[in-house]
Design a binder for these strands. Structure first.
Lengths: 241, 241
DNA sequence: GCTAGAAATTGATCTCGATCAAATCTTCGA
DNA sequence: TCGAAGATTTGATCGAGATCAATTTCTAGC
């Protein structure tokens, strides 16, 4: 596996799941195209790294690029209630630069391949490369837009609209160029519990809304996880805008 | 009024409410201390600029620093439902660098003093100053943390917890060094409708929860807007964490 | 394929917050 | 100070989604 030597720095060696070895520094940096190519050629594409990807401590002390899979960002209340506050897909950058009081933990939603590197590596790289800081700013602003879109969903949409919004979100991730009248089929990257935690609902309510959409002929559901959206434009009319 | 000449650039003149004149380029840049000093000495501190501060078009084409007051960021659905997705206080930077599809509009929640400047000015400044991009990244990450905190509130907290969380948010803005046992009094910067739109509730529910907190002796309410928190630590027990 | 355990669906009921309605309080101009 | 309009509170009722419970479906290991 080929690495960009120019961005490697001498730091603590970290397990890089992309190249199947411990190595020093950044592997692939933030070049989206190259990361996707890495993911496509990786023999570890289906690597199982378990449900717990990184905990609070690690996400503060280290960073990673997601090469393959879906990572969920979670916030919880002391009594156990949980809310998924973000989904990150390849080739997103994972981690929170600079200090923060806000505790967010990250978990793999699917099998995930990632390239990890220590905190100081990134911070050293930022100093030599304004371009890197610009990339981080652009991703942060995109995530901020996404978070605010989802705040509207959580604060003002009803259960059916939330589930429809979720299906559209995933469909648009699977096919960013999705057209309104095009049929699209995909496997949901999350369980009903995860979907409920993302939508601020219970699993029963999520299930009932999916049934409603299925009975109305907007979607087909096979084996729980497999979804066919017959008409994205029609689904959008259920999403509340 | 004194301006930092070094950051001025020759651009379209824009009305700057801080210095009460149209001028070219940036007034005060992003230096937080200087902006606060400006706000404190401004003769226009109580300037009434009406409810509508900047609309979608303007927020995409221009930027501003908030010198005084509270600005709310709003997202709406086609049928009129609204959600406040962020509050910005002095000396926050207002505006969304680079393009975005996400439509957020900004409105003044209180009287506001701000210093505005055109889009190209900022983008030109970024090119000459990595420090500026770093400031923007830090603010974007802070706003992202705040947005995710609020997603947990919107998705998983009940009405009483939401109202308690809101009061704590405002109290901590009024006094960032607030201690758990310290009595704090302040005027709410928002109407009941605005609070409801921030919390994903109705005005009636907000009112009932405030009454509940008042009857329980956690807060005092005078003339609707004036709040006394008798014991922030006790209020926190109502906020769900 | 068979089976056990987990995940998802479906049903019955309850509850919190929305909705509709009316009564107060507050503000502000005349 | 008075009065009107708007803001807020309070009351009564309703309904969407939560909760509790029982099946059914799916998955993985044998």
């Amino acid at each position: 596996m080929n690495h960009r030597q120019d961005v490697h720095t001498s730091e603590v060696p970290v397990l890089c799941v992309a190249c199947e070895a411990r190595h020093r520094g950044v592997c692939g940096a933030l070049d989206a195209d190259q990361l996707m190519a890495l993911a496509k050629t990786s023999t570890k594409k289906r690597l199982e790294i378990g449900a717990e990807l990184v905990g609070d401590a690690e996400i503060i002390d280290g960073y990673a690029n997601i090469l393959f899979g879906v990572v969920k960002l979670i916030k919880g209340l002391p009594d156990g209630r949980e809310q998924i506050v973000g989904l990150q897909f390849a080739p997103d950058f994972l981690g929170r630069p600079f200090q923060t009081e806000s505790a967010v933990s990250a978990q793999a939603a699917t099998n995930v391949v990632l390239c990890s590197f220590p905190k100081r590596t990134l911070e050293a790289l930022i100093k030599q490369s304004p371009q890197l800081e610009h990339s981080l700013l652009k991703q942060a602003l995109r995530e901020l837009d996404e978070a605010r879109d989802w705040m509207l969903t959580l604060g003002r949409k009803n259960a059916l609209e939330r589930v429809a919004s979720y299906l559209l979100l995933i469909a648009n991730y699977i096919d960013p160029a999705l057209r309104p009248q095009e049929v699209i089929a995909f496997d949901l990257p999350m369980s009903r519990l995860e979907i409920a935690d993302f939508l601020g609902l219970t699993i029963e309510t999520v299930s009932r809304q999916l049934t409603k959409l299925r009975v109305d002929g907007v979607i087909q559901v096979r084996q729980s996880r497999h979804i066919v959206v017959n008409n994205p434009a029609r689904l959008k009319t259920f999403s509340g805008g």
